Amino acid sequence: AEKTGIVNVSSSLNAREGASTSSKVIGSLSGNTKVTIVGEEGAFYKIEYKGSHGYVAKEYIKDIKDE
């Protein structure tokens, strides 16, 4: 099942092309942005936001229960 997560940073969080800190940054998400978690790979979540996919470090995403 898809989960919703909240970007848990004070400034912004980089979204990357792949599940690695050396992957190209494809965008950034500001704190408290809601994202859909579609998968996980190592220390990263694969997320969907406004129709695009990217990878973000798990430690900066807070899971919330689907309402």
Rank of each mutant, 00 (worst) to 15 (best):
G42E: 06
R16M: 14
I6S: 04
E48A: 10
K34G: 03
G39N: 02
G31M: 11
K24S: 08
K46D: 02
S28N: 08
K34C: 12
V9T: 11
I64H: 05
S23F: 07
L13V: 15
G27H: 05
G18L: 12
E17P: 05
A15T: 09
I64C: 10
I61R: 03
A1V: 13
E2Y: 15
K24Y: 05
V25W: 06
K46E: 05
V7E: 02
G27W: 14
S22F: 09
F44Y: 11
G39K: 02
H53G: 04
E41I: 08
A19K: 05
N32H: 10
G39F: 03
E41Y: 09
G42K: 04
S11V: 12
T4P: 03
G18T: 12
G18F: 15
I26A: 01
A1W: 15
S22T: 12
L29T: 02
S10N: 09
I61S: 01
T21P: 12
E59P: 03
I64F: 08
A19H: 04
E2L: 15
K62C: 11
G51Y: 04
A15Y: 15
S10T: 11
E59K: 13
G5P: 02
K3G: 05
G5Q: 02
I47E: 00
I61Q: 00
S20H: 08
S30A: 14
G5A: 04
A19C: 07
G54D: 00
Y45G: 01
I26T: 03
I26P: 01
I61A: 01
K62I: 14
Y45S: 01
S10F: 10
S23W: 04
T33Y: 06
S10H: 12
A57H: 08
S11P: 09
T21C: 15
G18S: 14
I26C: 09
V38N: 02
I37C: 05
I37A: 01
E48Y: 13
G42R: 02
T33C: 11
T36R: 14
I61E: 00
Y49V: 04
K24E: 06
S12I: 12
I64W: 08
Y49W: 10
S22Q: 11
V38Q: 03
E2R: 15
Y45P: 01
A57G: 08
D66K: 09
S10L: 12
A43Y: 07
G27A: 08
D63S: 09
Y55Q: 00
V9I: 10
L29I: 12
K3Q: 07
G39Q: 03
A43L: 11
D63N: 09
G42C: 07
D63V: 15
T36L: 10
K58P: 00
E67P: 11
Y45H: 02
V9D: 05
E40Y: 04
I37S: 01
D63I: 15
A15Q: 03
K34S: 06
N8E: 07
Y45C: 05
F44A: 00
A1I: 13
I26Q: 01
A1C: 15
E17N: 07
E17G: 06
T33H: 05
S10R: 13
S11T: 14
A19L: 06
S23Q: 03
E41R: 05
V35P: 02
S10V: 13
S30E: 13
E41L: 07
V7K: 03
S23P: 02
S28Y: 12
V56K: 00
A57E: 15
G54Q: 03
D63E: 13
I37H: 00
K62W: 09
N14D: 14
S28R: 14
N32I: 06
V9M: 07
I6W: 12
S30M: 14
V7Y: 03
T36E: 03
Y49M: 06
L13Y: 03
T4I: 11
K50L: 11
D66F: 14
G39D: 06
S22Y: 08
V35N: 01
E2G: 14
E41T: 07
G31C: 14
V56Y: 01
K3W: 15
E48C: 15
A43I: 09
K50P: 02
N32Y: 11
N8K: 12
T21D: 13
A1L: 14
S22M: 10
L13W: 03
S12H: 12
S52H: 10
H53K: 05
A57V: 07
A1Y: 15
K62N: 09
S11Q: 10
I47P: 00
E17F: 07
E67V: 13
N32R: 08
K58H: 01
L29P: 01
G54R: 04
K34T: 09
S22L: 11
I6E: 03
E2N: 15
E48L: 15
G54S: 06
G51L: 04
A15C: 15
S22G: 10
K58W: 03
F44G: 00
G27V: 08
T33E: 09
I26E: 03
E17W: 08
T36Q: 08
G51M: 05
S28W: 13
G42Q: 03
A57L: 15
I6R: 08
V56L: 04
A57D: 09
S22N: 11
K24H: 06
G51I: 02
A19M: 05
V38A: 03
K46S: 02
G42T: 01
I37N: 00
G39M: 04
T33Q: 10
F44L: 02
T4L: 08
N8T: 11
I61K: 01
N14V: 15
S22C: 13
N32S: 08
V56W: 01
S23N: 04
F44S: 01
A57F: 11
K3F: 09
K34Y: 09
S11C: 15
G54N: 01
N14Q: 14
I47W: 00
Y45Q: 01
S52V: 13
N8I: 12
S11L: 09
K3H: 08
A1R: 13
K24T: 06
E40W: 05
I47F: 03
T21E: 14
V25K: 05
N14L: 15
T36M: 09
T4H: 09
A1Q: 12
N32M: 11
S20P: 03
S30T: 11
K3P: 04
H53T: 10
S28L: 12
S20D: 11
L13R: 02
E48W: 13
K24D: 05
A57R: 12
T4D: 03
A43W: 06
K58D: 00
K46V: 10
K34V: 13
G51K: 04
K24L: 07
K65G: 08
K50T: 04
T21I: 14
K3Y: 11
G31H: 14
F44E: 01
G31P: 15
T4Y: 14
K3S: 05
I61D: 00
K34I: 13
K3V: 08
Y60V: 04
K3E: 02
S52G: 15
G27D: 02
S20W: 07
S12W: 13
K50D: 09
G51V: 02
I26K: 03
R16K: 05
K3T: 07
G42H: 03
E67R: 12
Y60R: 04
G18I: 06
E59A: 11
R16H: 15
V56T: 00
E40S: 06
E2A: 15
E41N: 06
D66T: 12
T33R: 06
S22D: 14
E2Q: 15
N8Y: 09
